[in-house]
Write a protein that binds this DNA or RNA. Sequence first.
DNA 1: ATGAAAGCGCTAACAC
DNA 2: GTGTTAGCGCTTTCAT
Lengths: 334, 334
Amino acid sequence: MTTIYEVAAHAGVSPATVSRVLNGNRAVNGVMAERVRTSIDELGYRPSQVARSLRTQRSRTIAVIVPDIENPFFTSVVRGTEDEGRGAGLMTVVCNTDNDVERERGYLRLAVDQRMDGVILATDQHDLGEFMTTRGPAVTTVLIDRELDSLRLDAVLVDNVLGAKEATRHLIESGAHRVACITGPANVTTATQRLQGYQEAMREAGIRRDRSLVRHADYHSAGGRSAMAELMAAGRPDGVLVCNNMMTMGALQELSDQGVAVPGDLLLVGFDDEPWAPYWQPPVTTVAQPAREVGRSAIRLLLDRIADADSVPRRILLLPSLQVRASSHPRQRH
Amino acid sequence: MTTIYEVAAHAGVSPATVSRVLNGNRAVNGVMAERVRTSIDELGYRPSQVARSLRTQRSRTIAVIVPDIENPFFTSVVRGTEDEGRGAGLMTVVCNTDNDVERERGYLRLAVDQRMDGVILATDQHDLGEFMTTRGPAVTTVLIDRELDSLRLDAVLVDNVLGAKEATRHLIESGAHRVACITGPANVTTATQRLQGYQEAMREAGIRRDRSLVRHADYHSAGGRSAMAELMAAGRPDGVLVCNNMMTMGALQELSDQGVAVPGDLLLVGFDDEPWAPYWQPPVTTVAQPAREVGRSAIRLLLDRIADADSVPRRILLLPSLQVRASSHPRQRH
DNA sequence: ATGAAAGCGCTAACAC
DNA sequence: GTGTTAGCGCTTTCAT
């Protein structure tokens, strides 16, 4: 692999001059710069980022650590970080923890070991282990999607309460009287917030609280399915808010198996818009989260934080939007 | 950030000794090693991979470059490379090209610049630009999913001809007489191979070739949808093989919109098994590709290639398997 | 068994 | 405007 010295020799200049050309330093004679560029091309030279990082102490690389890369919400977030990062010359590395604490720790360690410029992290782990030192995180970190109040860090969140509230209100206005809610694990903030939004909407509609209409599941399809089965057994609801995309699939399957027509017998709204929500049968009304914007905002917070390590942590709250489709179409009056 | 020198000073030894402990060099006194480990813990020291890579000329990192990270086939491949790579101490970096030649070039360049140990690449680009030098690829490379005969490289492929052939035969045996095929772009090898498998099965069943039953689309849902619409207009088929997961969604939507019942009016088989295929309405019969195994095999080929740069390129062909579900259930005889 | 020292490939003072 | 040089944090001979 050719080095900067070989390029320098080839062009008859010093390595410093090559470095200047490489880094767009204007203080280089035009002719000489051109000669250097020619040598670079002829030799097919590519500067070693490794050497560069060691020297400059910056890697121009950030890690995005997510619990589930198969969840389209997170893939969209990654698109956002790539988009926004590219502009700042930042490369995005995707790390998938599969909700495994040990893998998460491993990736945090990796970010440190690689001396990455930043970490964008979605987790419900309040204890980040050795990664959190007394002087803050070992690598500049921005949280996304889930809140971790215990950590004083920048964060980009979505207004889950509002999203769930609007969705529930929509179900009620569309004619549902017994609206159920399948939310995520009780220890995940997004799940409790969405449940809260549901409860607020119910209260405001003057519907009395009925615990048999609420289920916590695991944010995966199988969990959504059994939760839906339980709800049907506990007393048929005529509307349901399913608080994430994976569980929505499971719930729909269970309803289909039981011969429950959507929206005929039951109105349904899911969470997390995604590429194929419109393609389902029926097309599913969802609370769309601005996933891409989450990624973009996270990069911006990260860059600000790198520029000024000492300012007070910021919290960006983005708004979701209801995408109305067939699964919640108002019931015909009989 | 603490360095190896500070650890050495803290433990009262030389940096060389710390390095030896770090790398499990047995030639170090037990007591001393223990003292070093204590210092490492106390200081929270993490060796810089950057400095390590510069010194050893190995990054222990590979790039997996795929055309579409939202396609579950590729996410599964990535899982495979992570699984298998972890064992060898390799870290997987995921790069998403969105089928964009420029982005692909960019990521190949990145692999070079970061002096990565290897690249696992899914592409239909026959020209890899400067990445391919006269002495082979700039970084050790293994191709996956798609064939590139022009490049003499290791590759892990799936027997697409066989998969499509079995699927088509299954459709015919299940009672379809006019079996259509929606395949991918004519310049992508997986698409032509799947089409070929379809054609072979049709020929062997003694069904005469009918070009109006074949459509090329773009491997995305919208393309699958319009292809399905065209097929229905051109003369209703009673069976269809859709050659990738995204297009299957589109085709199903079109059929639903037209009021065509699956499998009642038309039998359907898709390609690429995926997490939610069983959750669709109806659950979809698919040709499941061993995506994870593709990733694992690719890592193995890569490691072999790194160990021996001069052996002849190998080609691993994996077998797909038909997952029979409701969408192709044999028609009741009227 | 341990240490001293060179060097991986680059950048940034500093000198000219 | 350009060159010389030190040094980023490691690993690895080569001495001892």
